[in-house]
């Protein structure tokens, strides 16, 4: 009986907070569809003006921004995933001197905020003529991603039944073969989750992109949006449409893979 009341209370809390989570997002969708010449107010719907997206896309040069974002995100995710699998494999299933210290270094990297390294990164990469290139965005982000990915994959490889590895070894399989043919097919969920997380972080990255790149043709989507809003502070519907364009790729990915995403987040955080 109390349990019934408590169940209701549970639904109420979940419902209310889900609504809070959703409302601003729905609001920005509605705003994006508003009549651009009408009285703009956030969250009200006064028509379905899909042409706002076209206007924002063209005025804001978003085609180019999205292209940059895709180039950077895909490169970072690809290399970070590859390197993380290799390093996680070594930390998880091999014994070698200094592995503890090295692993701690990677853990330390997880706590270093971009703000702490942005200053030297900028000045040193500038001296190497690497600012204003995709490299300036890709390399540092592979590095921060690898810190997380290595930890993540090590955790996964630690859960692999030892018998599997032993059996492979007895069959005379090399470590390389064991990794790619025996272990990795089983690791697909862990790898998928990791790539989703890395993709999201890379896509949404702001500070690095603000500092490293000033060339319009290399600019990534979040930065493009920030400057677009600076020029259009009073065009609510355009700003909203541009926001939707920038957020959409990650949101779509999330909707398709949310189970992996959440399971991964929980597993990574709780199971350890």
């Amino acid at each position: 009986m109390t349990s019934r009341a408590e169940q209701t209370l549970g639904y109420v809390i979940l419902g209310v907070f889900s609504l809070i989570a959703l409302l601003p997002i729905v609001g920005i969708l509605f705003t994006a569809l508003q009549d651009p010449d009408g009285v703009a107010a956030f969250g009200s719907l006064n028509g379905l003006h899909f042409e706002n997206f076209k206007t924002a896309w063209e005025d804001g040069n978003f085609g180019s921004y999205l292209k940059s974002s895709i180039i950077v995100s895909v490169s970072v995710v690809f290399f970070a995933t590859l390197f993380s699998i290799l390093a996680g494999y070594a930390f998880g299933l091999m014994r070698f001197r200094g592995s503890t210290v090295l692993f701690y270094l990677f853990l330390l990297g997880l706590m270093v905020p971009t703000e702490a390294i942005i200053v030297p990164l900028y000045y040193d990469l500038r001296d190497l003529n690497l600012t204003n290139t995709y490299w300036a965005l890709i390399l540092p982000q592979i590095a921060t991603s690898v810190a997380f990915g290595t930890y993540w994959m090590r955790t996964y490889f630690r859960t692999v039944p030892r018998s599997l590895v032993e059996a492979a070894r007895l069959d005379g399989a090399s470590t390389w073969f064991t990794l790619w043919r025996v272990l990795l097919p089983l690791a697909r969920p862990a790898v998928l989750t990791m790539t989703v997380l890395l993709f999201m972080w890379t896509w949404n990255e702001f500070l690095l992109a603000l500092v490293m790149v000033s060339d319009e043709s290399l600019r990534t989507a979040p930065l493009g949006l920030s400057f677009f809003q600076g020029r259009n502070t009073s065009e609510l519907s355009l700003m909203a449409a541009a926001s939707v364009i920038v957020a959409l790729p990650v949101v779509i990915l999330y909707i398709f893979l949310q189970r992996h995403f959440i399971r991964g987040m929980l597993a990574g955080a709780v199971k350890g």
């Binding site: 319009e216 920030s226 400057f227 600076g230 020029r231």
Partner: peptide, 9 residues
């Protein structure tokens, strides 16, 4: 090749 930014940006 023009890049336009608000004064603040």
């Amino acid at each position: 090749e023009r890049t336009k930014k608000s004064f603040e940006d």
